[in-house]
Simulated scan of single mutants.
Amino acid sequence: MGSFSLQLQRSIESHTPMPASLSHLVLIPSYNPGATVYETVKAARKYWSPVWVVVDGSTDGTVAGLQEMALADPDLKIIVLEKNQGKGAAVLHGIDMAFRQGYTHVLTMDSDGQHDASMIPVFMEQSQNKPDAMILGVPIFDASAPSVRVKGRKISNWWANFETCGGGIGDSLFGFRVYPIEPLRAIMQKQHWMRRFDFDPEAVVRLRWRGVKPVNIPAKVRYLNAEEGGVSHFNYWRDNKLLTWMYTRLFFGFLLRLPILLWRKARSK
């Protein structure tokens, strides 16, 4: 166990706060997750500091509760967008602010309680050891996972790896991951896509095109049911249509980049 892991373990056991990182932060885009967001934020803060929440035009009353939490916690920042703009837009807003304040990396996680916050230190340590890489979560599903989501992502994963010439992307859709801010921000500022459900898969493909290597780490995921406070904004037809259009336009970008991608692959062998 490294010195960072030992420091974290001692902090958790003694209930003393971890020193706030000056380079890595947890970024949680949030849109109408209901009260589950409070537990998500508490769990994230248990394992990391600082934590930022970008409230993406939520109308479920959680803004006031989150702001009240932040009043008692200087390492929790709540950023409120007046209108819903989409997950990618919320992340871009957050990384713009983070970049201006000197942060270099963000770990993104969903606000709906699906992601295992105890894995935050593992992902952050990997990122600190390999700052040029993107640290990607590979979901370990349990019985709560809808089969349509499990099976459908196989298609997305196939396309992501095809369009990167076998780029080693373990999972293209899982939103629990660490991004290096500078290349992601540069990519997003150059085009107006990647603002909604297409953000996660397009981000990893474009980052891989840019030469950012993936590090894949298994992480548990659970889908909360309605009784547990689970909320899903996934729409099968709308979001799959969006993904289809995304991979279609990426395909043409892939064809333009194919010579350099093949050259990189041959060079790495």
Results as ranks from 00 to 15, higher is better:
residue 157 N to F: 03
residue 233 H to S: 01
residue 43 A to R: 02
residue 212 V to Y: 03
residue 89 A to N: 05
residue 64 A to P: 03
residue 174 F to C: 05
residue 83 K to V: 13
residue 267 R to E: 13
residue 227 E to A: 15
residue 231 V to L: 07
residue 88 G to L: 04
residue 235 N to I: 08
residue 102 G to M: 00
residue 255 L to H: 09
residue 214 P to I: 04
residue 37 V to C: 10
residue 186 A to F: 06
residue 14 S to V: 00
residue 43 A to G: 02
residue 14 S to W: 00
residue 185 R to E: 12
residue 148 V to Q: 14
residue 65 G to S: 06
residue 177 R to L: 15
residue 223 Y to E: 14
residue 136 L to V: 02
residue 217 I to G: 02
residue 1 M to L: 02
residue 217 I to M: 07
residue 204 V to L: 09
residue 189 Q to C: 13
residue 240 N to G: 05
residue 136 L to Y: 00
residue 191 Q to A: 12
residue 175 G to N: 04
residue 84 N to A: 10
residue 246 M to W: 08
residue 212 V to L: 04
residue 47 Y to S: 07
residue 178 V to D: 12
residue 189 Q to E: 15
residue 93 H to D: 12
residue 35 A to M: 12
residue 5 S to R: 15
residue 60 D to W: 09
residue 239 D to M: 01
residue 21 S to H: 10
residue 255 L to R: 08
residue 51 V to Y: 05
residue 66 L to S: 01
residue 117 A to F: 01
residue 10 R to Q: 13
residue 196 R to W: 11
residue 124 M to F: 13
residue 190 K to Y: 05
residue 26 V to N: 00
residue 77 K to L: 10
residue 166 G to Q: 08
residue 234 F to M: 13
residue 266 A to S: 10
residue 255 L to N: 00
residue 89 A to P: 00
residue 182 E to C: 01
residue 55 V to Q: 09
residue 13 E to W: 10
residue 66 L to D: 09
residue 99 F to Y: 09
residue 194 M to D: 11
residue 65 G to L: 02
residue 20 A to T: 07
residue 249 R to P: 02
residue 119 M to P: 01
residue 57 G to N: 02
residue 62 T to M: 15
residue 58 S to C: 06
residue 85 Q to I: 07
residue 178 V to G: 04
residue 65 G to V: 00
residue 108 T to L: 07
residue 247 Y to N: 05
residue 154 K to E: 15
residue 91 V to C: 07
residue 54 V to Y: 11
residue 118 S to F: 05
residue 163 E to G: 00
residue 108 T to Y: 03
residue 241 K to E: 14
residue 148 V to S: 12
residue 107 L to W: 03
residue 258 L to E: 04
residue 7 Q to E: 10
residue 17 P to H: 05
residue 96 D to N: 15
residue 180 P to A: 00
residue 182 E to P: 04
residue 19 P to N: 13
residue 85 Q to H: 08
residue 68 E to D: 15
residue 139 P to D: 08
residue 187 I to Y: 00
residue 81 L to K: 14
residue 206 R to Q: 11
residue 31 Y to I: 05
residue 146 P to A: 06
residue 195 R to H: 06
residue 200 D to H: 02
residue 61 G to Y: 02
residue 199 F to A: 08
residue 78 I to S: 01
residue 253 G to E: 10
residue 95 I to D: 02
residue 170 G to E: 05
residue 238 R to Q: 15
residue 159 W to L: 09
